[in-house]
Write a protein that binds this DNA or RNA. Structure first.
Lengths: 221, 221
DNA sequence: ATATTTTTTTAGTATTGCCTAAACAATATT
DNA sequence: AATATTGTTTAGGCAATACTAAAAAAATAT
């Protein structure tokens, strides 16, 4: 069991996130942009993380997270997301106000605390942004991408892609605030024409035709 | 608004606690013992806290906390104790297992978080050890000391003193685990002879005569 | 193929918070 | 009063994490 400092955990998390989507050899500059530190600081930290065997690091060639590293990153992400659920569901934070506080809470070191928090929250599978919460073994529930119109009434999800990427369609999405990453929930389905009433980002409702909904892909929750 | 690091907050808290009971000119060695650091480290830190005007410090003569310092110390204590209540009441921690985790949680910097946590917990006035929780202005509820036998059924408190301090009486208290600092709760009162059934430290029950109970002073909660 | 630009690393510095060893101040002992 | 003891501070160092400036390597352009 390696010990990681909070700073090390943050860098490891950044490497993990930048490695997603199968990206290989994450660059020093990318990490520096993500972490808002200078590349020189990143180089320092990469050597340390490499010594602790949570990343594979070849100078000038970028880094890849190891299996061991992934485990640590996922536990930090688990903690972050559980705290976000707590803040939103128990302390009535808005879902877009929780990140910074969770960023601090995620570094509290107490396995029993997280286990109990998970229980207390009823073992949630997704955080308030719709991102999946890894379980204690680091397993994340894979979610299918579905067109928005196939969700059942009151089901929700997060917009992750669009099928139609014409300028007109994107302009429309922009206008109504249905960006990639937005959280949506089906409030009503009109049987007659398949049109929908949607709650966007827990803030505003929006009516959309079936044609539009078919072109919005969501990760279901 | 000064900013204090976690380490500074911890030292300030130590100075505050050591200053209680009207003790003046807290010594470097006392702080070093409390903080489990070396006296040399304490000297370093005292200079920093003095620069930030949260303590009055004259070399070789010990320190006194300033009014400003007291405010900061009380806010940290408030956070610590609110988190303890959370851990015990919501996450089912035993009341003697919460200190270390609360020691980390107390340094999370988010005023709104604490305000909401306080609300969520129903504005508790005492932590699981029976210590009072300062309000957002730093005011602490003064609690009357009462003989244990005058508490009502199901009322609880913390033993803070004894009236009779004979060896025989202290030996008895020692035997039954009713030390100064122990948390007690009245489980039953026998009308006939005024004897009591008491829960000690949430762990074991104990029968005591009215004579004994009259000599145990508790801070009511 | 060489020159230029970009990226990355190294070297050296600062700050925080701790340490040890040595110096200094206050107090107790003879 | 002189000395021994205890308590406190200073000096100098170390580890972590950041920085800037400069050097080195890699990538790109001419």
């Amino acid at each position: 069991m390696i010990k990681l400092t909070s700073a090390e955990e943050n860098y490891l998390k950044a490497v993990y996130h930048l490695s997603e989507e199968g990206k290989k050899n994450v660059s020093t500059n990318d990490i520096s942009a993500e972490m808002k530190t200078k590349p020189a600081s990143v180089s320092d930290m990469l050597r340390k993380l490499s010594d602790k065997k949570v990343i594979d690091y070849r100078k000038y060639y970028g880094v890849n997270i190891t299996d061991e590293g992934k485990k640590y990153a996922l536990q930090v992400i688990r903690k972050h997301r559980l705290w976000e659920v707590f803040l939103v569901e128990k302390l009535r934070f808005a879902w877009d106000e929780v990140h910074e506080v969770a960023e601090e809470l995620e570094h509290i070191k107490s396995p029993i605390l997280i286990q109990r928090l998970d229980e207390f929250l009823g073992h949630p599978k997704f955080d308030p942004h719709g991102d999946p919460i890894p379980d204690e073994f680091g397993d994340v529930k894979a979610r299918p991408r579905l067109p928005l119109n196939v969700l059942a009434l009151n089901d929700g999800g997060q917009i992750v892609a669009v099928k139609d990427s014409s300028a007109a369609f994107l302009r429309y999405l922009d206008k109504v605030g249905a960006y990639i990453g937005a959280r949506v929930k089906v409030l009503d389905k009109v049987e007659f024409d398949g049109s929908l009433e949607i709650l966007v980002d827990n803030k505003k409702t929006l009516f959309m035709s079936k044609d539009v909904a078919e072109n919005i892909l969501v990760l279901q929750q």
